[in-house]
Amino acid sequence: MSLIGTTIKPFTTQAYKDGKFVTVTDADTRGQWAVFFFYPADFTFVCPTELEDLADIYPTLRKMGVEVYSVSTDTHFSHKAWHDTSPAIGKIDFYMLGDQSHAISTNFDILRAGQGLADRGTFVVDPDGVIQLVEITSEGVGRNAAELLRKIKAAQYIAAHPGEVCPAKWEEGEETLAPSLDLVGKI
């Protein structure tokens, strides 16, 4: 069953951000766009490359009103240790949520059965807490933050322009489509 169009479920967890441990709840994510960026584990291989890529576009996302929540089943203590020892992870300014209870991973249906690890998944949530975008890749396939940025711009555009849709490879400023009977069979 797809999670697109569903509202995120309640959660409370500890996170590492800006050199501090903080509590984060689902209520904290409301009123702004949010990215939940699940990855299998701290101190691994593909994960730091993805998180560093995301850290590079984080300032742009913040200007767009988007907050980022990276999530693994590690503890917030582990996130701090990784942040303090890895040059790539040291670039992160966004929230690093600990999900050792597996509540968040279960809520997003991204927990690997019997393994206690989250799959590699990205969820874009609108300001009302509704999931608008989902991307899940296999263990060895890293994600591209530039493509995520493009998708978020498209999601924000269609949210602000009801009745319009963004075609394949749409980039900000390009033409959109207004689905109608007149377009059927003409694209």
Score class of each variant (00 low, 15 high):
Gln115Leu: 13
Glu135Leu: 15
Phe11Gln: 04
Arg30Leu: 15
Lys91Ile: 01
Ile158Cys: 00
Ile8Pro: 01
Arg62Tyr: 01
Ser70Asn: 02
Thr106Glu: 15
Gln14Thr: 14
Glu67Cys: 06
Thr106Asp: 10
Cys166Leu: 00
Gly142Leu: 09
Glu135Gln: 15
Val66Trp: 09
Thr137Phe: 11
Glu67Met: 09
Pro48Phe: 06
Glu164His: 13
Ser70Trp: 08
Phe94Gln: 03
Gln100Cys: 00
Gly173Lys: 10
Glu67His: 13
Leu183Glu: 03
Thr25Lys: 07
Pro40Ser: 00
Leu177Asn: 01
Ala41Arg: 14
Pro179Asn: 02
Ala118Gly: 14
Ser78Gln: 12
Leu61Gly: 02
Ala34Trp: 10
Thr60Ala: 06
Ser78Glu: 10
Asp18Lys: 13
Gly121Val: 09
Ile131Lys: 09
Tyr16Glu: 02
Gly5Lys: 07
Tyr58Asp: 14
Arg120Ile: 09
Cys166Gly: 00
Glu171Val: 10
Thr23Val: 12
Lys17Asp: 00
Ala41His: 13
Val184Gly: 00
Trp170Met: 02
Cys47Arg: 09
Met96Ala: 08
Pro167Met: 01
Lys91His: 11
Asp18Gln: 15
Ile158His: 08
Asp93Asn: 15
Pro162Met: 01
Thr73Trp: 06
Asp93Ser: 12
Ala160His: 07
Asp119Trp: 15
Arg150Pro: 03
Leu183Gln: 04
Ser2Arg: 09
Phe123Asp: 04
Thr7Ile: 00
Val130Leu: 05
Phe94Val: 01
Thr6Cys: 02
Asp18Glu: 15
Asp126Glu: 07
Gly5Met: 03
Ser138Ala: 14
Val24Tyr: 09
Val22Lys: 08
Phe37Val: 02
Ser180Lys: 05
Asp56Ala: 13
Arg120Cys: 09
Ala103Pro: 02
Cys166Met: 06
Lys80His: 08
Glu67Pro: 00
Leu51Thr: 03
Leu97Trp: 09
Ala178Pro: 00
